[in-house]
C-alpha cells in the first residue's frame, strides 16, 4: 500500500554549499598540515638524538624557502583551528561561579591566556 517516497541524496560537494559548511571543512582539513608539522617535530627529536650534525642538517632543511612556506601554511591552519576552537569553548564548557554564568568572553579569554602562557613557556625553554 505504501507508495514510493523520495529520498534526497547528500550531494558530493555539499560542503561547498554554505559558508558555515566551508568554514567547518577548513577546520577539518587543518588536521593535515598540523599533523604533518607534528611529524616534522618528531623527526626533529629523532635527528637531535643522532647527534649535532644530524640536528644541524635538520635545521638547515627547515630553513629552505619551501619548508618555510610549508611552516607558514601549517601555522595559519593551527591559528585558524585554535581561534575557531576557542570560540566554541564557552559552549562546550559552560562554567558558573555560584549563581552566575561566566560570560562566554571570559572562557574564550582564558583559553587565549593559556595559549599565550604556554607559548611563552615554550619560547623560554627553546630560546633560553
Amino acid at each position: 500500500m505504501s507508495s514510493s517516497v523520495y529520498t534526497p541524496k547528500l550531494p558530493r560537494w555539499w560542503w561547498l554549499h554554505h559558508a558555515g559548511y566551508r568554514r567547518y571543512m577548513v577546520r577539518e582539513l587543518s588536521c593535515i598540515p598540523i599533523g604533518v608539522f607534528a611529524v616534522m617535530l618528531i623527526v626533529g627529536c629523532w635527528r637531535l638524538e643522532q647527534g649535532p650534525e644530524s640536528w644541524q642538517a635538520f635545521r638547515a632543511a627547515l630553513a629552505t624557502p619551501l619548508a618555510l612556506v610549508w611552516q607558514l601554511i601549517a601555522l595559519a591552519f593551527a591559528v585558524y583551528h585554535s581561534i575557531t576552537w576557542f570560540a566554541l569553548a564557552p559552549r562546550t564548557m559552560p562554567l558558573r561561579i555560584g549563581a552566575r554564568r561566566l560570560p562566554a568572553s571570559w572562557i574564550a579569554g582564558a583559553h587565549y591566556l593559556a595559549w599565550a602562557v604556554l607559548s611563552l613557556l615554550v619560547l623560554r625553554i627553546v630560546g633560553g
Binding site: H18, G20, Y21, Y24, E28, L88, R91, T92, M93, P94
Partner: peptide
C-alpha cells in the same frame, strides 16, 4: 563532528552542538 550548523538554524536557540560537545 561539530559542524555547528544545527545551532545556527535552531529557531529556539537550543544550541544542540554545544550540548553534544558537553
Amino acid at each position: 563532528s561539530f559542524v555547528g550548523e544545527c545551532s545556527e538554524v535552531c529557531p529556539k536557540h537550543v544550541d544542540p552542538a554545544g550540548a553534544i560537545q558537553q
